[in-house]
Amino acid sequence: MHKIGHPSTTICKVAKEEDADLIIMGSHGRGFIKRALLGSVTLGVLNRTHIPVLVVKKPIS
């Protein structure tokens, strides 16, 4: 499936339309202080949805 739009808003919208039980997001862990552990898209999804979100963080190599 390919959608166009703001990533975090689109992810939340599709998850709601598909009646998802869980959203799984990857996070590289880069960013500024507020995003020290999460990427901006992951943080946006966490702030926009009531659906549980599982965040998988890539280990620092």
Rank of each mutant, 00 (worst) to 15 (best):
Met1Tyr: 04
Met1Ser: 14
Met1Thr: 14
Met1Val: 12
His2Tyr: 12
His2Met: 03
Lys3Thr: 04
Lys3His: 13
Ile4Thr: 07
Ile4Trp: 03
Gly5Cys: 15
His6Asn: 03
Pro7Gly: 04
Thr9Ala: 13
Thr9Ser: 10
Thr10Lys: 13
Thr10Asp: 05
Thr10His: 03
Ile11Lys: 13
Cys12Tyr: 01
Cys12His: 01
Cys12Lys: 06
Lys13Glu: 11
Val14His: 01
Val14Lys: 06
Ala15Lys: 11
Glu17Gly: 02
Glu18Trp: 08
Glu18Asp: 15
Glu18Leu: 12
Glu18Asn: 05
Asp19Gln: 11
Asp19Lys: 10
Ala20Gln: 04
Ala20Lys: 12
Asp21Trp: 05
Asp21Ala: 15
Asp21Tyr: 09
Leu22Met: 15
Leu22Glu: 03
Ile23Ser: 02
Ile24Asp: 00
Met25Gly: 00
Met25Trp: 00
Met25Asp: 01
Met25Cys: 02
Met25Glu: 01
Ser27Met: 13
Ser27Cys: 08
His28Pro: 10
Gly29Met: 14
Gly29Tyr: 12
Arg30Pro: 01
Arg30Lys: 15
Arg30Asn: 14
Phe32Lys: 10
Phe32Thr: 00
Ile33Ala: 12
Ile33Asn: 04
Ile33Phe: 14
Ile33Met: 15
Lys34Trp: 15
Arg35Glu: 15
Arg35Ser: 14
Arg35Leu: 10
Ala36Asn: 02
Leu37Gly: 00
Leu37His: 09
Leu38Asp: 03
Leu38Gly: 07
Leu38Asn: 09
Leu38Gln: 03
Ser40Ala: 14
Ser40Asn: 15
Ser40Tyr: 00
Ser40Trp: 09
Val41Phe: 13
Leu43Gly: 13
Leu43Tyr: 01
Gly44Arg: 04
Gly44Asn: 04
Gly44Leu: 05
Gly44Ile: 01
Gly44Ala: 06
Val45Asp: 07
Leu46Ser: 12
Asn47Glu: 09
Arg48Lys: 01
Arg48Val: 00
Arg48Ile: 02
Thr49Asp: 10
Thr49Asn: 08
His50Glu: 12
His50Asp: 02
Ile51Ala: 03
Pro52Trp: 02
Val53Ile: 06
Leu54Pro: 02
Leu54His: 01
Val56Asn: 04
Val56Thr: 12
Lys57Glu: 11
Lys57Gln: 14
Lys57Phe: 13
Lys57Asp: 08
Pro59Met: 08
Pro59Ser: 08
Pro59Val: 06
Ile60His: 09
Ile60Met: 07
Ile60Glu: 14
Ser61Phe: 11
Ser61Asp: 15
